[in-house]
Design a protein around this nucleic acid. Structure first.
Lengths: 107, 107
DNA sequence: TTCACCTGCAAGAAAAAACTAGCACGTGCC
DNA sequence: GGCACGTGCTAGTTTTTTCTTGCAGGTGAA
């Protein structure tokens, strides 16, 4: 359920999703939530790298993080997807472009 | 009318749209086709820079180019938008992620 | 204590993208 | 000819993003 985004928000969302690693993260989390280290092993990438991508996904509002204690008392950081739905058309892009703040306003 | 894209195609489309200049190009062309120099003036950016962005938009299949002779015999390169429609959800991302070719295949 | 697991952060290297400046070519018109 | 307009290209710089390496902290269990 997505309302319209500002141009900057949309640009950030698109830039965030336009990355193979992050697409795979979304794919992995779509099957169910998971914690950082396990996710890194599942995807076959280093943990710091995964944390970088997760931070970007969270900053774009595409995933959420929640701490949870495991049965043996360890603090695990679980990530999950946020159910988003963005439709891209020339018109939706044009609409979003009106609210871009990158340099100069519009004409 | 968009069918499903491969993971790489989708990544390229998103990366292409995730740029303020290119969003404004789409917005400008959505109002009607235009040629390079006029478009550069309208957007207030240099022509080489615009050509770079137009090349990326065309490579992603989001705009098309066509040469046309002006009344005084000059060869003008007109660009126009391609009517695309891409919907992004965690599921569509997950589906596209299966066909990513960046490094290693899938599990 | 030592080991295995979890987390976080930051500095520096490597790669990719964005942008500028400048050149080439062509045309019609004063 | 000189000027204004259209096109294309390329080399080099700047900026951003991506990724690695390495270290810090914490817990429970053998």
């Amino acid at each position: 359920m997505e309302t319209s985004h500002s141009g900057d928000e949309l640009a950030r969302i698109l830039a965030t999703l336009a990355n193979p690693h992050r697409m795979r993260v979304i794919a992995a989390l779509a099957h169910g939530r998971n914690y950082v280290s396990a996710l890194a092993r599942e995807l076959g990438i280093s943990r710091p790298l995964l944390q970088l991508h997760l931070a970007k996904l969270e900053a774009a509002g595409l995933v959420t993080a929640a701490f949870e204690l495991s049965h043996d008392g360890k603090a695990m950081k679980y990530y999950d997807t946020v159910p988003f739905a963005v439709t891209l058309t020339p018109q939706s892009i044009a609409l979003a472009a009106r609210t871009l703040t990158t340099e100069e306003g519009q004409s």
